[in-house]
Structure formats: structure tokens, C-alpha cells
Computed example of a mutant assay.
Amino acid sequence: MTILNISLPELIQAFVAQQVDKGGYGTVNEYILDLLCQEKAKAEQIESLLLEGLDSGEPLEVTDDWWEHKRSSLIQQFQSEQ
């Protein structure tokens, strides 16, 4: 495992210490590692969803006119549900 040293302002250090205690982490390292793993998982999920979107069908050109039509359509749909 590689060692990474970081400097934190006192307020952030206090916050991290609180989170370690609240979260039941044994050390600050465990807390930071968990945060980074969560962020990595989110990034992987976003990439997976983007790839799924790219493979979902024929591409369409999104222009200003397309957005205006989409916006108008959604407004009409919302108003009809009221």
C-alpha cells in the first residue's frame, strides 16, 4: 500500500475526527479510504450508465429547437396532470 500524506485545516481535521467516531471507523485512514471507495463506485456507475445510454439506440441531434419542443411538451404534460 502506498502512503499519502495530506495537510488539512483544523476545522476539517475536527470534522474528520467526528466522522470517524460517528461512523465507527477505527482510524482516519479507514474513513478516508471508505470515502474514496464510495467516490470510485459512483464514478464507475456513472460511466456504466453513460455507456448504456450510448448503446441504447439511434443517436439524435439535440438542438435548441429540440430543447424548446421538449420543454413545451413537458410543460403541457405537467399542466394536464394538474
Results as ranks from 00 to 15, higher is better:
Met1Lys: 02
Met1Ser: 13
Thr2Gly: 08
Thr2Asn: 13
Ile3Thr: 15
Leu4Arg: 12
Ile6Arg: 06
Ile6Thr: 14
Leu8Thr: 02
Leu8Tyr: 00
Pro9Phe: 05
Glu10Phe: 08
Glu10Gly: 00
Glu10Cys: 06
Glu10Thr: 07
Ile12Glu: 12
Gln13Val: 06
Ala14Ser: 12
Ala14Gly: 08
Phe15Pro: 00
Phe15Ser: 11
Phe15Tyr: 07
Val16Ala: 09
Val16Ile: 14
Ala17Val: 06
Gln18His: 04
Gln18Asn: 11
Asp21Val: 12
Lys22Ile: 10
Lys22Gly: 00
Gly23Leu: 00
Gly24Ala: 07
Tyr25Thr: 03
Tyr25Gln: 01
Tyr25Asn: 05
Tyr25Ser: 07
Tyr25Val: 00
Gly26Ile: 05
Gly26His: 06
Gly26Ala: 09
Thr27Trp: 13
Thr27Ser: 15
Thr27Cys: 08
Val28Ile: 14
Val28Cys: 10
Asn29Pro: 00
Glu30Gly: 08
Glu30Leu: 03
Tyr31Arg: 04
Ile32Asn: 07
Ile32Ser: 06
Leu33Ile: 09
Asp34Lys: 07
Asp34Asn: 07
Leu36Tyr: 07
Leu36Trp: 02
Gln38Val: 03
Ala41Met: 00
Lys42Ala: 09
Lys42Asn: 05
Ala43Met: 10
Ala43Asp: 04
Ala43Arg: 10
Gln45Asn: 10
Ile46Glu: 11
Ile46His: 05
Ile46Cys: 03
Glu47Thr: 11
Glu47Phe: 04
Leu49Cys: 05
Leu50Phe: 07
Leu50Thr: 13
Leu50Ala: 14
Glu52Pro: 04
Glu52Val: 05
Glu52Ile: 09
Gly53Pro: 11
Gly53Cys: 12
Gly53Leu: 13
Leu54His: 11
Leu54Lys: 15
Ser56Val: 10
Glu58Arg: 14
Pro59Asn: 13
Pro59Glu: 13
Leu60His: 10
Leu60Thr: 14
Leu60Pro: 08
Leu60Cys: 15
Glu61His: 11
Val62Asn: 06
Thr63Cys: 02
Asp64Ser: 09
Asp65His: 09
Trp66Thr: 08
Trp66Pro: 01
Trp67Tyr: 11
Trp67Ala: 11
His69Ser: 08
Arg71Glu: 09
Ser72Ile: 03
Ser72Ala: 12
Ser72Asn: 13
Ser72Leu: 12
Ser73Asp: 12
Ser73Asn: 13
Leu74Asn: 05
Ile75Val: 13
Ile75Ser: 01
Ile75Arg: 01
Gln77Arg: 09
Gln77Asn: 05
Gln77Asp: 06
Gln79Cys: 02
Ser80Thr: 03
Glu81Ile: 01
Glu81Pro: 01
Gln82Thr: 06
